[in-house]
């Protein structure tokens, strides 16, 4: 177990290193000069060059990258070009909104996905099953921005129960989380259905039924306990994915998460922010994967930790 963890941790650091390298290269491939964005429209050539020098952007790329890494290992993500604020501070200010949306999303994913998947599994092959699966697919297939605008139109404009976007109270959270929850819920319901179907075929379920337990108890207690593990693993993956923020949903609802920060930084070629956000997102994904991998052996004993 410990060796597994050590090995995975080593791999993870290598992956994160690679992520910073690729992001760094991509940032410099962007067809825009960050220095000109800082210097403004009345700047002289001398000013532009002076700013370039101060930011170290006049040095060869490998040198810049090594210097960046040097600061990174000391926990310094640098300062935003445009805002001059510490990137760490900017990310921390967005993190609460991102985490809140993540929790809300996973809540709705489970709220929608679990009952639908379980019910479909118990009615396998029936028209209800077909309908649930069709709806799950529909949830997966609807673009987040369409669903987001649709929910806004219906539940904030036509029937104004929820605010028209923004951030602050739990009420603000419902629609964005529901938007992401519906598409995620589609995946969950399909997954829980197939794992339920497998479990319901197994011997111990037959034993339980033979003991005279109610069908409800068999499904909800015995079967679900065994079928739920892949869901837990998937929640782990989701945590990672949502660390990058939800660019689209954040933009539809004006949610001040990490995705918006990243999106604006890409528009403004604010390289320190781009680097910082990608790194945080990659850490999230790597940790999420690790979490999922740690859970997998409990799901399927044939999987060993290697």
């Amino acid at each position: 177990m410990l060796t597994f963890l050590a090995k995975r941790l080593g791999q993870s650091i290598l992956i994160l290193f690679g992520v910073t390298l690729i992001t760094f290269c991509l940032s410099f491939l962007m067809p825009a000069d960050p220095v000109r964005m800082i210097a403004g429209r009345s700047a002289t050539q001398a000013t532009v060059e002076s700013i370039r020098k101060q930011l170290g952007l006049d040095q060869p790329l490998p040198v810049q990258y090594v210097k960046y890494l040097g600061r990174l290992v000391q926990g310094d993500l640098g300062r935003s070009y445009k805002q001059k604020t510490q990137v760490r501070e900017l990310i921390m200010s967005r993190l609460p909104a991102t985490l809140l949306l993540m929790v809300g999303t996973i809540f709705f994913e489970l709220l929608i996905g679990l009952p639908a998947g379980i019910y479909a599994a118990t009615k396998r092959g029936s028209p209800t099953d077909t309908w649930i699966m069709a709806l799950s697919f529909a949830g997966v297939s609807i673009p987040q921005f369409v669903l987001g605008l649709l929910l806004l139109y219906v539940f904030a404009n036509m029937i104004p129960i929820f605010p028209l976007g923004g951030y602050g109270s739990l009420k603000h959270l419902v629609l964005p989380a529901l938007t992401l929850g519906i598409s995620g819920g589609g995946w969950y319901s399909r997954m829980i259905r197939s794992s339920m179907v497998d479990v319901l075929r197994q011997d111990f379920i037959r034993t339980a039924r033979a003991k005279g337990l109610t069908e409800r108890a068999v499904v909800l207690v015995h079967a679900l306990r065994n079928a739920i593990l892949p869901v837990v693993a998937m929640v782990g993956l989701d945590i990672g994915i949502f660390m990058a923020g939800a660019v689209v949903v954040e933009s539809v609802y004006g949610w001040p998460g990490i995705g918006q920060l990243a999106w604006q930084a890409i528009q403004m070629v604010d390289i320190p922010i781009i680097m910082g956000v990608t790194l945080v997102a990659a850490i999230g994904i790597v940790l999420g994967n690790l979490l999922a991998d740690l859970i997998m052996p409990f799901v399927d004993p044939r999987v060993y930790l290697r």
């Binding site: 690729i22 940032s27 990058a244 999106w263």
Partner: peptide
């Protein structure tokens, strides 16, 4: 896999 996919696509499209 560790890259946030949408951000990667946005960055590539910008390039």
């Amino acid at each position: 896999m560790a890259f946030p996919a949408l951000l990667l696509a946005i960055a590539l499209a910008a390039i």
